[in-house]
Nucleic acid binder design. Structure first.
Lengths: 228, 228
DNA sequence: CTGCAATATTAGGACGTCCTAAATCGGAGC
DNA sequence: GCTCCGATTTAGGACGTCCTAATATTGCAG
């Protein structure tokens, strides 16, 4: 009844809404109008209006004043966009010399323009990677995604050594700063100190020590279990 | 006064109109409303309306009932799209395993989504080619283009041997047929016969003979000068 | 339990793009 | 030189997306 219609060519706006709602709650918890509006840089009334249209099309469910949830069909469409976005990012870094701070903006436009065929060609050229340059998992073509358990660096106890898995940041400037500290997915860091106020964490990475603030501490998502 | 404004982010539709008008008359002869409407698969009134808007923005000049011509600014914007389109086609064929009949549709969408940076990265990866997979010249980044003199195969006299330079066709089905005859840019063919009625031309290519009709005879653009 | 602040929705409007139907123009043939 | 057909433009309207201003709801604080 709904399986095919995902590919009935959604507009660019619709694709953005679905991806935003998915990103606000991958688990399916309702997302609020204002969260969506903030993420998409739109006014709340615009979101209310679009949400109404999308729920009529069966892509999400809207309980007025209570938020929206993707339907199964909406979730499929959203994951399709996430897959495109992350594969495009990976491709640009691998084959076209992009740095990780520049790929987001480019992918944000390309994800609406590439065909399924092109996406799969890129995936093949890349050897079907599981993660993008920021460590975010790439959903498979059939819509499954494996979110691996991560802990924000802010929550790692002093003395522990962890591996950075994901860097949850899109702003180019911030990404360049993070890279300048030697922090990127796959790097191991040791928490050597924590200040009780402001939750400042001192980490050792590649022989250097850096102080990490609250925001960056949540951007850096780590795997705690020492074993690879 | 107008040099910068080309990059003031034109909409997808506007980009399509400019490219269409350029393609209808690279030399700058006026293009008619109905020609444009036909090429873009729109109704003539839609074209009239858009043309009015574009001429107010200084991208073209419209003399009512007499057709439209691109301004210098409009021509620059159009050539930018042509460059993107043809480089994307070349890239898809070279690096992502596309065949020449599949690239047009993909490039038609991507040309609106890629950044200037990405276009230049692709050009670099390709070694700054002069022509796309159909033999069409790729405008340079500064907007110059070298159209080389071509003669339709239909106009080649019997007995002459020529090299195919360009294949003026977008339809995948037709392109596959053309390829199946061994006809593509760079191939040499000899005209062995011509029927006076219907202008059917018999050519020899790769040891085989094929009869070429009027339409295909104009699709195949050849270099007459025997040299190289 | 009531009232207020925060959040969400409705009302009303703009803009870009497209359409069909109706009017108008321009040139070819008489 | 007039007439008429085809090309073009004007008129009027739909749709998707967005906005601001005004209204409604929710839930918390007192």
């Amino acid at each position: 009844m709904s399986a095919v219609s995902v590919s009935e060519s959604l507009t660019r706006s619709v694709e953005d809404y679905l991806k935003a709602i998915y990103q606000l709650s991958p688990e399916g918890r309702p997302a609020s109008t204002s969260e969506i509006a903030h993420l998409l840089a739109l006014s709340p009334p615009s979101v209310t209006g679009m949400v109404k249209r999308l729920s009529e099309h069966g892509l999400l469910e809207h309980v007025p004043y209570r938020g929206v949830q993707l339907t199964e069909e909406g979730r499929r469409a959203a994951l399709r966009m996430v897959r495109r976005h992350r594969l495009i990012e990976a491709y640009l870094v691998e084959f076209l010399g992009y740095s990780w701070d520049a790929v987001h903006e480019e992918a944000e436009r390309l994800e609406h323009a590439v065909s399924d065929v092109l996406v799969e060609r890129m995936a093949t050229a890349l050897g079907h990677p599981n993660v993008d340059p920021h460590g975010d998992p790439i959903p498979s073509a059939d819509g499954s995604i494996q979110e691996l358990a991560c802990t924000p660096l802010s929550d790692i106890p002093v003395g522990e050594t962890v591996e950075i898995h994901r860097v949850h940041e899109n702003q180019p400037e911030n990404l360049r700063y993070i890279a300048s500290l030697g922090l990127r997915p796959g790097v191991r860091v040791r928490v050597v100190d924590r200040q009780p106020i402001d939750n400042l964490v001192t980490v050792e990475v590649g022989g250097e020590q850096h102080v990490i603030g609250r925001e960056l501490g949540h951007v850096l998502q780590c795997a705690r279990s020492g074993g690879r």
